[in-house]
């Protein structure tokens, strides 16, 4: 998991998908695909501001998601994003929501383990256990709003 979390986007990829996304936005509306590709690059950026922006773009996508298949992908990247930002609380919430959709998802299980290890290491386990309790997917949208107000 370490390797996935620490994987850094190639600057040229980030630039490429940023251009695509901005171009479409300027012309009215960016497609979900353009937004997904750009958000995915941002989450893997070295810079905190980019990561935050990436997570916000995924939060926006998940609001419009049509099915659990799409939701699953977004939840995974949101959890990765929050792990990188070190907001382990949110990271855990999202990975648990993913595990509700696919309880055997190996990537999600590994990510969950990784986040819990990080929390323990950084000593913020207490609060995590309480609110890390599995959240219904419906609750996620509210949570997304609550978080973006921070």
């Amino acid at each position: 998991m370490e390797r996935i979390i620490n994987d850094i986007v190639e600057p040229e990829d980030l630039k490429k998908y940023e251009l695509l996304y901005n171009d479409q936005t300027r012309r009215g509306h960016a497609s979900d695909k353009a937004q997904f590709d750009y958000a995915w690059c941002l989450v893997r950026s070295k810079y905190l501001e980019d990561m935050k922006r990436g997570v916000a773009l995924f939060e926006d996508l998940i609001r419009r998601a049509k099915d659990d298949i799409e939701r699953r992908d977004y939840l995974y990247y949101m959890s990765i994003g929050y792990t990188k930002i070190k907001e382990y609380q949110q990271a855990l919430t999202y990975v648990k929501a993913l595990l509700k959709i696919e309880p055997n998802n190996y990537q999600a299980l590994e990510l969950e383990k990784y986040i819990e290890k990080k929390m323990k290491k950084e000593g913020i386990m207490g609060i995590a256990i309480v609110s890390g309790a599995v959240l219904a997917l419906g609750g996620l949208i509210g949570l997304g709003v609550a978080m973006s107000k921070k």
Partner: peptide, 12 residues
Amino acid sequence: MADCPHTIGVEF
């Protein structure tokens, strides 16, 4: 893994 979900992005 008999019941392997589709990979999200990449695995390592």
